[in-house]
């Protein structure tokens, strides 16, 4: 494992700055494993990040080219960047649940609509943890957080019949999966498929925040107890009750079924150039 970090992670960012026991390290490692198993080198990947624990802890860890967007807008930036990058470059974004599913959701949906070739890995820590623990749209109902002292009651996008990944499917995403970091190699397999998809992929990767969610919602600092809670809540299939479990698996695989945005735009531009000639004013 340390070989993997040496291969891909900047030495000055290893170890990272995540809290002791934070599940983010596992999540980060899953992405590196997927990259490694796909045989990708440092120069094959451009890595972007969002805001929050996920973004801050993974920014500029990648030895190759990296960038961090403003909060929720990294999908729009990646759309512009994708037009400039050679198609073979893999564009991977590691972002948080708040970045992707709330403040950045408009841009995420539009990236899905366009089917822009990027892999968005949502490191989901069940709420806003870098600001000290407030509930978000993936926080289980009833969870006590610093902004839901009587329990989270606002409807979320993972329970009560909602699934944020279903919205993304309807919006045109071509690969969607959800896992928790405690599922061994399964998330890596999904990440590999996501990265290989020449289109818009999202992998929601749920991980335990021990410092805030653990203490506030689960009432314990004991890492073993927190991880046990996550393990018990993880269902290995998609048919389990989402009100009580993290249902996992590939929710949608339509890889290659839609024209990728940058490829489509290039083709469109070429057809215009062919039709009207180069640089003619009228």
């Amino acid at each position: 494992m340390s070989d993997l970090l040496e291969k891909y992670v900047r030495p000055e960012k290893n170890p990272g700055t995540a809290c002791k026991g934070c599940g983010l390290r596992l999540a980060h490692r899953k992405v590196l494993e997927a990259i490694d198993e796909l045989g990708l080198a440092q120069g094959d990947v451009v890595w972007g990040t969002g805001i929050g624990c996920s973004g801050r802890q993974t920014f500029v860890t990648w030895k190759g080219d990296t960038f961090a967007g403003t909060h929720g807008r990294v999908y729009a930036m990646a759309t512009g960047l994708r037009l400039a990058l050679p198609p073979e470059k893999r564009l991977i974004l590691t972002v948080g649940d708040g970045d992707a599913f709330t403040i950045g959701f408009l841009h995420l949906l539009n990236a899905a609509r366009r089917n822009v070739d990027m892999t968005v890995v949502v490191f989901d820590n069940l709420g806003y943890q870098s600001t000290g623990g407030q509930y978000g749209v993936t926080t289980p109902l009833g969870s006590k957080t610093d902004s839901s002292p009587y329990g989270a009651w606002e409807p979320n996008w993972t329970q009560g019949g909602f699934d944020v990944l279903r919205i993304l499917k309807e919006s045109g995403a071509t690969f969607l999966a959800r896992h928790t970091v405690l599922q061994g190699h399964e998330p890596v397999e999904s990440l590999k498929k996501a990265i290989q998809n020449r289109g818009f992929s999202v992998v929601q990767l749920i991980y335990p925040c021990v410092t805030h969610y653990g203490v506030q919602a689960l009432g314990t600092r004991d890492l073993a107890k927190i991880y046990d809670w996550f393990r018990e809540r993880t269902a290995d299939d998609l048919s389990a009750d989402a009100n009580t479990h993290f249902t996992t698996g590939i929710t949608h695989d339509a890889s290659g079924s839609r024209v990728e945005f940058a490829a489509g735009l290039r083709q469109f531009v070429a057809s215009v150039q062919k039709g009207v000639g180069n640089g003619e004013t009228d």
Partner: peptide
């Protein structure tokens, strides 16, 4: 989003 797309394109060399 428009200016973010521009920023993204620019850091790609456009």
């Amino acid at each position: 989003a428009a200016l973010h797309i521009c920023n993204g394109g620019s850091i790609g060399g456009l």
